[in-house]
């Protein structure tokens, strides 16, 4: 099992402030996104991460800059937690030229090469083989990076997931598969879609170290990730983490928060374990919280989020010439070699 060092915060005030900042930034940013969506500033499908922030923050906090991340269409929070700027994400959501994908991707397809963020992907399970291929490339080059592949629990019933885990287990690839089990694949409860209740057990059948993690507790996420990353770096070993969480919003902006497939009572019960409040409580208990800290962070983030909105609003739409750009690249004899 993972070492216990990370589960005992032992008064690391700077780290805790960073974790809290990361989680509150995701929350406030997405609240602003919901506002922008309602105003028609953002179009298309838009899936919020609210309630799941401890997963993104905890996972990213264990990665190095040269590691890779790939994820689903519920990608705003993770993009921010990975270090993408609020400006570039908001501008992408607004469909503007200064967006991280130059306005070509939108909410579901955030990409940023500079931080190894290999995209939000729109087909459930479709990116899991891609993550496996990135891990293959790391091993091919003899590197010591890893890739984290986020997915929802609904993806684990999909063939792409099983094919990928089989190859990662067979070939020993440095990948951490993170199942964010938020209990619902859109509106279908997992017990109505999966023949087993414990998703992490799917990994065991492929000889992959697999475990269950409390996704509302950022320290629990960090502890499991720390061990997983070490396995990947040292021995090219894959890991499957089933990180249990809950989304506080609907599947997407166009769907009700509760009432159809889940009750308001259930939602309220889960909201008692809001990951941000849990972190605040833990910080208070271990003495790393100080007076006005939350207010300071909130103030800082409010400014960042408003700035991202202003920036996105001022950014031009892509010019019409962009329509035919980036379909193909011009091949040159000196193609980019990545380290």
């Amino acid at each position: 099992m993972a070492s216990k060092k990370k589960s005992d915060p032992s008064g690391d005030a700077t780290l805790h402030r960073e974790l809290l900042h990361s989680m509150i930034l995701q929350r406030r940013f997405e609240e602003k996104v919901a506002e922008a969506y309602a105003l028609g500033k953002i179009g298309g499908f838009c899936h919020l991460y609210i309630g799941q922030e401890a997963v993104g923050t905890g996972v990213m906090s264990e990665l190095r800059h040269d590691d890779y991340v790939i994820t689903t269409y519920r990608d705003h929070g993770q993009a921010l937690a990975r270090g993408m700027s609020a400006r570039s994400v908001m501008a992408e959501l607004f469909g503007r030229i200064d967006g991280c994908s130059r306005g070509k991707g939108g909410s579901m397809h955030l990409f940023d090469r500079s931080v190894g963020f290999l995209g939000g992907h729109g087909i459930v399970g479709g990116h899991v083989p891609i993550a496996t291929g990135v891990a293959f490339a790391i091993k091919y080059r003899g590197g010591d990076q890893c890739i984290v592949c986020f997915m929802g629990e609904a993806a684990v019933n999909n063939g792409a997931f099983h094919e990928s885990l089989n190859m990662a287990g067979l070939w020993k690839l440095p990948v951490v598969y993170v199942i964010e089990n938020n209990r619902y694949g859109m509106g279908t409860a997992m017990n109505r879609a999966s023949s087993i209740a414990e998703m992490y057990k799917r990994g065991e059948t492929y000889s992959i170290h697999s475990e269950e993690v409390d996704g509302q507790d950022v320290f629990a996420v960090r502890e499991a990730m720390s061990a997983a990353v070490a396995r990947a770096r040292k021995n090219y070993e894959p890991t499957l983490l089933e990180i249990k969480t809950y989304r506080f919003m609907g599947h997407s902006m166009s769907d009700a928060v509760s009432g159809t497939y889940r009750s308001k009572a259930e939602l309220e019960e889960y909201m008692k374990r809001d990951p941000i409040n849990l972190l605040k409580a833990k910080m208070t208990a271990d003495g790393t919280m100080r007076e006005n800290l939350v207010a300071e962070i909130e103030q800082e983030i409010a400014a960042t989020v408003q700035d991202s909105w202003d920036y996105a609003d001022a950014s031009p739409e892509p010019p019409i010439e962009a329509l035919y750009e980036d379909v193909l690249v011009e091949t040159t004899s000196d193609t980019t070699q990545e380290g």
Partner: peptide
């Protein structure tokens, strides 16, 4: 590869994404 076209085609995509 195993007989998993979807899986290994995706492995190729991932490898190409990071420069192989």
């Amino acid at each position: 590869t195993p007989i998993t076209e979807l899986g290994f085609a995706g492995v190729g995509v991932g490898a190409a994404m990071v420069g192989l």
